[in-house]
Design a protein around this nucleic acid. Structure first.
Lengths: 112, 112
DNA sequence: TATATACATGAGCATGTGTTCATATATTGA
DNA sequence: TCAATATATGAACACATGCTCATGTATATA
């Protein structure tokens, strides 16, 4: 019996016309992470290297709590990681691909 | 008098440490458009060419109203455009750059 | 002109999101 | 152990978001 058109597409190509539930979820979550100005500013700052929570808060003029909440969000999506040094947690990027998406969008927006 | 480090960065490089208000807004809006499963499915469908509103609704199993609302959203951001043929409006992509961001994310998500 | 078709629009509702405030936890040093 | 510092966490609130339902508008055709 012949395979249906759609089934063939899903199995053998990348230009999937139909997106499965999980892919849809992952993609939407990824973009959701990048859709908030505060998170964009945090990630953009982390482009320049690792920073502590207080450092991020002061540099971006945000509350410590707000930064901590957002970092937890980004950490759950594995977009950032941290290392501990005494009482201080130094956060840094942890997903090159997503950071590239952000950089592209910023570059494009800056060029008006 | 010498320029400050940050000032030099803003003027002469693209790796801006400080994002201005407008850039931040544009970038966040762009990603917000791509952060909803329904809009992702619509844009992904439009990758394959132009489609009427009813066609989109039937293909993706969505209500006509829901599709129309989302298309208005995407149209306001100039991510889609349409042409009229009688009573039918054929929608299609209108921002190659943003579509590329979407394709990249989908490709990456599919590769697990 | 009257009816049908294709799409747009606004109100209302349930749910999601980002912040602040208060407080908890963890680590360091006296 | 006690106080200080750095960060995490939960509740509560205001606001945003996406859907449905009802209805409006535009175009084509009888």
């Amino acid at each position: 019996m012949m395979m249906e058109e759609q089934e063939r597409e899903q199995l053998f190509t990348e230009d999937t016309e139909h997106l499965d539930e999980e892919t849809l979820f992952v993609v939407s979550q990824t973009f959701k992470a990048l859709s908030d100005p505060t998170r964009i500013r945090i990630l953009n700052l982390l482009c320049t290297g690792e920073h502590s929570v207080n450092d991020i808060a002061e540099t971006l003029n945000l509350s410590q709590s707000s930064v901590s909440h957002q970092l937890r969000f980004l950490k759950n999506l594995r977009l950032v990681k941290y290392r501990r040094a005494g009482r201080t947690l130094y956060y840094s990027e942890d997903d090159e691909h997503v950071m590239n998406l952000l950089k592209q969008a910023i570059k494009h927006a800056l060029h008006h």
